[in-house]
Design a protein around this nucleic acid. Sequence first.
DNA 1: AACAAACATGCATAATTATACCATAGTTGT
DNA 2: ACAACTATGGTATAATTATGCATGTTTGTT
Lengths: 149, 149
Amino acid sequence: MKIKRHAKILEILDQHAIETQEELAEKLKEAGFDITQATISRDIKEMKLVKMMDASGRYRYSKYRDEAVPVNERMMNVFREAVTHIDYAGNIVVVKTLSGMAHAAAVTVDLTEWSEIVGCLAGDDTIFILLKTEQTAMELVSNLKKYIK
Amino acid sequence: MKIKRHAKILEILDQHAIETQEELAEKLKEAGFDITQATISRDIKEMKLVKMMDASGRYRYSKYRDEAVPVNERMMNVFREAVTHIDYAGNIVVVKTLSGMAHAAAVTVDLTEWSEIVGCLAGDDTIFILLKTEQTAMELVSNLKKYIK
DNA sequence: AACAAACATGCATAATTATACCATAGTTGT
DNA sequence: ACAACTATGGTATAATTATGCATGTTTGTT
């Protein structure tokens, strides 16, 4: 049910200016989902939705507009095969790979054209990716994690 | 002081994982800005900052990554000269211009390459811009308002 | 099927955030 | 200089959101 509810939430946010979680709960109830504000709070966290001021000066929940890292088929394959762990510290993202695979994985990272990536260095089983800010490092981790395991 | 504080806030958000407004208030105090959580709340609204789950599963304040509408010199000029009012209803943005100027302004909108813009129709002093969703209509209004008056 | 483990969600409430109201300081026009 | 605005921001508190705990539900395993 959670999946369907999440889909419905996106639909509702696109169609109505939702200012509070209670309001969203209302709409969901109208749509036949019987849930409480607590669940909405968890959904919002999980779905990475955000509350921000809109053009009319009021608050509004909306999708976070994610600047996705452009990935290609090769990168997806290499990551699925070779990457074991991804994390970051400050503005550096650290990618751990199976032994000897770091170089191959790093090449695919180099090939992306994400302007926030300053540079990328591979050892035997570790890659350091230098980003412009911690904020973007966090986003890169979030993006890359989709492709591992 | 507000301007400087806002700049400092952006700097802090890039350097630290800030989970609450109180935490941000702390950092600002360390930096010599003597303010309270209430002010932060107002700043966050005004600056359109958002709280969302980060890669580690915790909350974090960050900039909203805005997909800016690509504007050119001509558009900025036309808007400054001719556009009097911008608003939206549902997924349609309505731009009011001085009499007879709508066409000129609409042409510059047509020339932007924002994929969310479905189409654009001009009368004598009014333009209708059709967007894909209300959400993007809201964002377009927010973006265009920077260029009028 | 029986059970364990993982997941989902309500309830109550703690934690956090937004804002009404007020005071003060800065600006503007006369 | 002075009144009238406007902008800023604190205080107190209302409003909203997050979450610990308990319970029910689903999933996977033997």
